[in-house]
């Protein structure tokens, strides 16, 4: 076999394996969120991209995401996502991330529509930290892109994907902080 062909085959196999593991990670996250009454808000959808022959940069998904809603927090759209690469700025992202956060549509409002790109709002944080701490979205970006979508506030955190080594670290680094921060934020709004 041609050496380049063999290397390509190996690369694709590894990518397929990575996607399978990301799927398992996010399905595990779904289950953990469901245990806390957060239901998937977009069914089984986890990707967006393009099938257009002229858009190969969009053939590979930038992120794999899950959005969640909760009847007790009707104005909140939470998300957990794996950001695989940064389509617009490769050098900004040195490794894949696991991010989570939420968008608040304001007291008394319910979720209507949303865009899948919200799953990588962490990439637009001006101070781009990958330290597991939840922060409000950069004010300038918020005013420019999210305010017009009737979003009142948005938060995100990120950790290196490879730091998630099992359900234990998924719970302590993502699920628990996400739920605790959403709930405390929601209480302070009441």
């Amino acid at each position: 076999m041609n050496e380049n062909g063999e290397n390509t085959n190996n690369l694709i196999k590894q990518m397929a394996r990575l996607y399978a593991e990301i799927s398992l990670l996010l399905r595990t996250a779904d289950k953990m969120m469901l245990d806390k009454d957060w239901e998937p808000a977009a069914g089984n959808t986890a990707l967006q991209g393009s099938r257009n022959i002229d858009a190969p940069n969009y053939w590979i998904p930038q992120d794999v995401f899950r959005f969640y809603s909760n009847n007790n927090h009707e104005q909140i759209l939470a998300y957990i996502a794996v950001t695989i690469f940064h389509r617009d700025n490769e050098s900004k992202l040195e490794e894949p991330l696991l991010t989570c956060g939420w968008l608040d549509y304001g007291n008394g409002n319910k979720l209507a529509t949303w865009d899948y790109w919200y799953a990588h709002i962490h990439l637009y944080q001006k101070k781009f930290e990958i330290d597991g701490k939840m922060r409000p979205i950069d004010a300038a970006f918020f005013e420019k892109e999210l305010r017009k979508k009737n979003i009142h506030s948005a938060y995100s955190l990120a950790v290196p994907l490879m730091d998630i080594t099992g359900t234990g670290s998924l719970d302590t680094k993502i699920i628990k902080p996400l739920i605790a921060e959403v709930e405390s934020s929601n209480e302070s709004n009441i």
């Binding site: 290397n7 190996n10 690369l11 990575l18 994907l161 490879m162 998630i164 099992g166 359900t167 998924l170």
Partner: peptide
């Protein structure tokens, strides 16, 4: 069940 990510093998330049 999810138990972390597999070790990635180095793929030579294609």
């Amino acid at each position: 069940f999810f138990s972390g990510f597999s070790q990635v093998q180095n793929v030579p330049p294609i």
